[in-house]
């Protein structure tokens, strides 16, 4: 049976999902597993995806939650029985799927509302992929300033988009399952 159009959209996102996963966990093998697991959950939860919103943001959030779930689980169960741990982690848990939706223009709009110096440094580093040094030269500011602006700018952006920890409107009541 052919894969669905939805799956093909996810396939198109794979390079970014993998880059995202590698950034999160820092290990290529583990990252591929995270991507697989996240895609699996995304497929199961595809009915909850709202057409017209950003599929990438939705999938990132699922992948992030898969990663955090693994850490959380390990924390609560300890490491005395690593094998059982591993089995548990690989277990099915279709309920814990975030229902994140970001309107296509949400990031653009949130960026537009940021303080100009925040927007500027975010653009240089995250969009144009400059190193901190290059951004500092471009801005004529010390690296320390670039770093503090950049982290504050991301906090602000994250809050505007509802990504900040603990208070995310993107994870509705359904995310907890039953």
């Amino acid at each position: 049976m052919p894969s669905s159009p939805f799956a093909e959209e996810l396939v198109a996102l794979l390079p970014r999902l993998r880059r995202f996963a590698r950034s999160l966990c820092g290990d290529a093998t583990l990252a591929d597993d995270l991507v697989q697991l996240a895609c699996e959950r995304a497929l199961k939860a595809q009915d909850t995806f709202e057409e017209g919103t950003r599929l990438d943001a939705w999938a990132f959030r699922i992948l992030r939650n898969v990663w955090l779930d693994g850490i959380r689980k390990k924390k609560s169960e300890g490491v005395s029985e690593p094998v059982e741990d591993a089995v548990e982690l690989s277990g099915e848990d279709g309920r814990r799927v975030a229902h994140a939706s970001l309107a296509a223009s949400a990031v653009f709009e949130a960026m537009a509302r940021l303080a100009p110096d925040h927007r500027e440094v975010l653009t240089l580093v995250c969009v144009e992929d400059m190193s901190y040094r290059e951004a500092a030269e471009k801005l004529g500011a010390p690296i320390g300033t670039v770093m503090s602006r950049l982290s504050r700018a991301r906090r602000a952006l994250g809050e505007a988009l509802g990504l900040a920890d603990g208070e995310s409107p993107l994870e509705g009541a359904e995310a907890g399952g039953s």
Partner: peptide
Amino acid sequence: VETRELLA
């Protein structure tokens, strides 16, 4: 990581 990836 997430904010970066959304912009990248």
